[in-house]
Amino acid sequence: MDRALRDFDKRQKAIRRKHTRMAKGYRNKMNANGVIMQKPDSKIGGYLSRILFLAVLAFMAFKVLLLTGIGEELYMERVSVLQLGNTYERAGAWLMQIDPVTAWLSQQAAAFLL
Results as ranks from 00 to 15, higher is better:
Met96Asp: 01
Ser42Ile: 09
Leu95Gly: 11
Ala93Val: 10
Lys13Met: 15
Ala55Leu: 05
Phe62Thr: 07
Phe53Thr: 10
Gly69Glu: 15
Lys63Arg: 15
Leu65Thr: 03
Trp104Lys: 12
His19Pro: 03
Ala32Phe: 00
Ala110Arg: 01
Ile15Tyr: 12
Gly71Ser: 02
Gly34Thr: 01
Asn28Pro: 04
Asn31Met: 04
Ser106Phe: 10
Ala110Trp: 01
Gly25Trp: 04
Ala23Phe: 06
Val101Glu: 08
Asn28Ile: 05
Arg6Asn: 12
Thr102Arg: 07
Gly46Thr: 13
Gln107Leu: 08
Ala109Thr: 08
Tyr47Ala: 11
Met1Asn: 14
Met37Pro: 03
Val79Asn: 02
Lys29Trp: 08
Lys43Gly: 12
Tyr75Thr: 02
Leu66Tyr: 00
Ile44Cys: 05
Lys13Phe: 10
Met96Ala: 08
Glu73Cys: 07
Ala58Trp: 09
Asn31Asp: 05
Arg11Gly: 03
Met60Arg: 15
Gly45Cys: 01
Tyr75His: 03
Met22Trp: 04
Glu89Thr: 11
Lys29Leu: 13
Phe62Val: 01
Glu73Ile: 11
Gln107Ser: 13
Ala109Lys: 00
Gly25Ala: 05
Leu66Trp: 05
Val81Leu: 08
Thr20His: 12
Leu54Trp: 10
Arg11Leu: 13
Asn28Arg: 07
Ala23Ser: 09
Arg90Asp: 04
Thr102Pro: 05
Phe59Met: 08
Glu89Leu: 13
Thr68Ala: 15
Val81Ala: 02
Trp94Gln: 11
Asp2Met: 06
Gly45Pro: 04
Ile36His: 06
Gly46Asn: 13
Ala110Pro: 00
Ala91Phe: 04
Gln83Phe: 01
Ser49Asp: 03
Ser49Gln: 13
Gln38Glu: 10
Val35Thr: 06
Trp104Pro: 02
Gly46Arg: 14
Ser42His: 07
Ala91Ile: 02
Val64Asp: 02
Ile15Trp: 12
Ala32Arg: 07
Asp9Thr: 09
His19Tyr: 13
Ala109Trp: 02
Asp7Asn: 14
Met76Gly: 01
Phe112Cys: 05
Pro40Arg: 02
Gly71Asn: 00
Ala4Arg: 14
Leu52Pro: 01
Thr102Ser: 07
Gly46Ser: 11
Lys39His: 08
Met60Asp: 04
Glu89Gly: 03
Leu57Glu: 03
Val81Trp: 03
Arg6Asp: 11
Leu84Tyr: 05
Phe53Trp: 10
Met22Gln: 12
Tyr47Thr: 10
Ser49Arg: 15
Ala103Arg: 04
Asp2Ala: 15
Ile51Met: 03
Ala14Met: 14
Met30Thr: 08
Arg78Gln: 13
Leu74Pro: 01
His19Ile: 14
Arg90Cys: 06
Gly85Ile: 08
Leu95Glu: 03
Lys29Tyr: 09
Asn31Leu: 00
Tyr26Ala: 11
Gly46Ala: 12
Leu5Asn: 09
Lys43Met: 11
Lys13Pro: 09
Tyr26Leu: 08
Arg27Cys: 07
